[in-house]
Simulated scan of single mutants.
Amino acid sequence: MTTIDPSLYLNNQTTSRTPSNNLGKEEFLKILMTQLQNQDPLSPMDDKAFISQMATFSQLEQTMNMANSIDALVQSQLMSPVIQYSHMIGKDVSYEAYDQETGEKLGVKTGSVVAVSQKEGWAILELDNGEEIYADAVLKISSDEESERPGKVSE
């Protein structure tokens, strides 16, 4: 004869619940279904009240969907290297230049950032001298106003 596990008895189940001030989509739907199940068949719920509750439920669901979409948009914007480095447009940057063929160091060069693009998840700074460098190759950043100050010796 098979026996039933005593941990499955209803009196052995936990009955505690943590109350919450937030009413979510699932809770709203449970309340609505309970109202429909327990209404008097001879005096059903007023159709205007029912329609109002359904409209509220629909509005709640749309608001939750919109909030999720905005969160996804914000996260994608924060992760974009183009957005992260767009503040560098118009700035002068110094970087270590290398010969494309030999890999030999050519010394430190300076150029003004005219655009920021993305390649394989890395930020690429496009400079006014026609070169493209990775953003992490920048050694120094300076603004145009800083290089045009009176008394400043330009390179």
Rank of each mutant, 00 (worst) to 15 (best):
M1L: 09
T2L: 15
T3A: 08
I4C: 11
D5Q: 05
P6I: 09
S7D: 11
S7P: 02
Y9P: 00
Y9F: 12
Y9L: 13
L10G: 07
L10C: 02
N12H: 08
N12P: 02
Q13T: 08
T14P: 07
T15P: 00
S16R: 12
P19D: 15
P19H: 15
S20W: 07
N21V: 09
N21W: 08
N21F: 11
L23M: 13
K25R: 13
E26G: 01
F28K: 05
L29T: 06
K30I: 07
I31V: 14
L32A: 12
L32N: 09
L32Q: 08
M33F: 09
T34Q: 15
T34D: 14
Q35H: 06
L36N: 05
L36H: 01
Q37T: 11
N38C: 02
D40Q: 00
D40E: 03
L42D: 12
P44V: 11
D46E: 08
D46F: 00
D46Q: 05
D47L: 06
A49Y: 05
F50A: 10
M54T: 04
A55I: 03
F57D: 02
S58F: 04
E61N: 03
Q62T: 11
Q62M: 09
M64E: 12
M64W: 01
N65A: 09
A67P: 03
A67E: 09
N68Y: 06
S69Q: 09
S69L: 06
D71H: 05
A72L: 14
A72F: 12
A72R: 11
L73W: 02
L73R: 04
V74K: 08
Q75S: 08
Q77E: 03
Q77Y: 00
L78W: 01
L78G: 08
M79A: 15
M79S: 15
V82Q: 07
V82G: 04
V82A: 07
I83K: 00
Q84T: 01
Y85T: 02
M88V: 03
M88D: 00
I89Q: 08
G90E: 03
K91E: 06
K91A: 05
D92T: 10
D92M: 09
V93T: 00
S94C: 04
Y95V: 03
E96N: 12
E96H: 10
E96P: 04
Q100V: 15
Q100S: 15
Q100M: 14
E101Y: 14
T102N: 13
E104N: 11
E104L: 11
K105M: 07
G107W: 06
V108H: 05
V108N: 08
K109D: 08
T110Y: 00
T110Q: 08
T110W: 03
G111R: 04
S112M: 15
S112A: 15
S112R: 15
V114S: 04
A115K: 10
S117N: 13
S117I: 07
W122A: 14
A123D: 01
I124N: 06
I124P: 02
L125Q: 00
D128L: 01
D128F: 01
D128K: 02
N129W: 13
G130C: 07
E132Q: 13
Y134F: 12
Y134L: 13
Y134W: 09
A135I: 00
D136Q: 12
V138C: 03
K140C: 07
K140L: 10
S142A: 14
E146H: 13
E146V: 12
E146M: 12
S147I: 12
E148H: 10
R149G: 13
P150G: 06
P150D: 15
K152H: 14
V153L: 11
V153I: 10
